[in-house]
Computed example of a mutant assay.
Amino acid sequence: MDKLSTRVKLADVARMAGVSASTVSRVLSQPEVVAEATRIAVMDAVAATGYRMNHAASNLRRGRTGSVVALVPNLGNPFFAKILDGMGRELAAAGYGLLVADTLEGQGRDAAVARFLDPSRADGIILMDGLVPLASLTGPDLPPVITACEWIEGAALPRVMLDNRDGGRMAMQHLLGLGHRHIGVIGGPAANVLHIARLTGATEAAGDARLTVFAGDFSLQAGQAAAQAWLALPATQRPSAVFAFSDEMACAFVATLTRAGLSVPRDVSVIGFDDIELVSHIAPALTTIRQPKRDLGRLAARVLLNRIEGHEVAPLTLVSPILMLRETTAPPAAT
């Protein structure tokens, strides 16, 4: 079958589908401009004949590399795995390969971005690091660039992202609904756009509740440090609940308190953000705000593909957060 499929030509597909070869070509390269019935007939013929499009030759004719680059601020963070999986699947279906680079390796963010701003290296870039300087994204003949997850204030780049402000509001409303009135927040770097958006939503929802902010950077180490700071407070001044802006910080916070002989949620409620795969399997399972990560990755890839093809795209594509109720939040203990 494999040997047979290599001999199948575009004309064979066209003959089976009852259309012209140019129509088959349009279906395979720009399916959105072809009527649904025609598209279905062509794809059925592709499946029946085993036709395989020569993407390398197609890219050469169009002056394309056939590759898209995702620039990630920390590849060691498990948060990105499902997002990249969603991107990769969507891009592969369109005949593109996904390359991934870490903006924190080597010479830093400027150098990481500069390596891929040449159209001969990549047909487009999905930038997932909001701390890349805007000046790094200027110059002639740049490939299409969009931002995903994080974004750069002031940059006229399409954004695909979670509604982080709503996620912050949702987490705070959950804790308030349980009866907590003194709530700790473990944030991210002060200039980070995710930190700002989540803190804005949380603060808006908090009303007259008392907030205590612990420094953070989304890492395990920051969660541990926040727990040590929480433990150092007099018992009467400790927040009865803590909202961590990442699941990694939330998990480290819970683990540090557990080693100190305390219990979550009996002694303090904890809610995280992201819903990385680990947190539903630990004990106690973490209450958190879910980012639909594969959906976000697929949407980001789709927006970039439209930009590569020269189509207009929305300046902002928002994905809605979801509250995942598990075992680390409960009403405050009676005093």
Score class of each variant (00 low, 15 high):
residue 1 M to D: 08
residue 3 K to Q: 12
residue 3 K to G: 07
residue 7 R to K: 13
residue 11 A to T: 07
residue 13 V to E: 00
residue 13 V to N: 02
residue 18 G to V: 05
residue 21 A to Q: 13
residue 28 L to G: 00
residue 30 Q to W: 11
residue 32 E to D: 13
residue 38 T to A: 08
residue 48 A to E: 11
residue 48 A to L: 08
residue 51 Y to M: 00
residue 51 Y to Q: 00
residue 54 N to A: 10
residue 55 H to G: 00
residue 57 A to G: 14
residue 59 N to R: 13
residue 59 N to S: 15
residue 61 R to M: 03
residue 63 G to K: 14
residue 65 T to A: 10
residue 69 V to I: 15
residue 71 L to H: 02
residue 75 L to V: 14
residue 75 L to D: 06
residue 77 N to K: 10
residue 79 F to D: 01
residue 81 A to F: 09
residue 87 M to S: 03
residue 89 R to G: 03
residue 90 E to C: 10
residue 91 L to A: 00
residue 92 A to F: 04
residue 94 A to W: 00
residue 94 A to T: 07
residue 96 Y to C: 04
residue 97 G to C: 08
residue 98 L to C: 03
residue 100 V to W: 10
residue 100 V to D: 04
residue 101 A to R: 13
residue 102 D to L: 07
residue 104 L to Q: 15
residue 109 R to M: 02
residue 112 A to I: 03
residue 112 A to N: 03
residue 113 V to Y: 00
residue 116 F to P: 01
residue 118 D to K: 10
residue 121 R to L: 05
residue 123 D to G: 03
residue 128 M to H: 12
residue 129 D to C: 07
residue 130 G to R: 02
residue 131 L to C: 01
residue 132 V to Y: 05
residue 133 P to G: 14
residue 137 L to C: 06
residue 138 T to K: 15
residue 139 G to F: 10
residue 140 P to K: 15
residue 142 L to S: 09
residue 145 V to C: 02
residue 145 V to S: 02
residue 146 I to Q: 06
residue 148 A to L: 13
residue 151 W to G: 00
residue 152 I to L: 12
residue 157 L to G: 02
residue 161 M to Q: 13
residue 164 N to G: 13
residue 168 G to A: 04
residue 171 A to S: 07
residue 172 M to W: 05
residue 173 Q to M: 12
residue 177 G to T: 10
residue 177 G to L: 01
residue 183 I to P: 06
residue 195 H to T: 06
residue 198 R to E: 06
residue 201 G to E: 11
residue 203 T to E: 09
residue 209 A to W: 11
residue 211 L to I: 07
residue 212 T to K: 07
residue 212 T to N: 06
residue 214 F to C: 08
residue 221 Q to V: 01
residue 223 G to L: 01
residue 225 A to W: 01
residue 229 A to E: 11
residue 230 W to T: 08
residue 230 W to H: 11
residue 234 P to S: 02
residue 235 A to M: 06
residue 236 T to D: 15
residue 237 Q to G: 07
residue 240 S to W: 05
residue 242 V to Y: 02
residue 246 S to R: 08
residue 251 C to K: 14
residue 252 A to T: 09
residue 254 V to L: 13
residue 258 T to R: 14
residue 262 L to Y: 11
residue 265 P to Q: 02
residue 269 S to W: 00
residue 270 V to P: 06
residue 271 I to M: 04
residue 271 I to N: 07
residue 274 D to L: 03
residue 276 I to Q: 05
residue 280 S to K: 15
residue 282 I to Q: 03
residue 285 A to E: 04
residue 287 T to D: 04
residue 290 R to V: 00
residue 290 R to T: 03
residue 292 P to A: 11
residue 294 R to E: 12
residue 296 L to H: 03
residue 298 R to W: 00
residue 298 R to E: 13
residue 300 A to H: 01
residue 300 A to G: 09
residue 306 N to W: 06
residue 308 I to S: 04
residue 309 E to M: 07
residue 312 E to R: 12
residue 316 L to H: 05
residue 317 T to S: 10
residue 319 V to G: 05
residue 319 V to M: 13
residue 334 A to W: 12
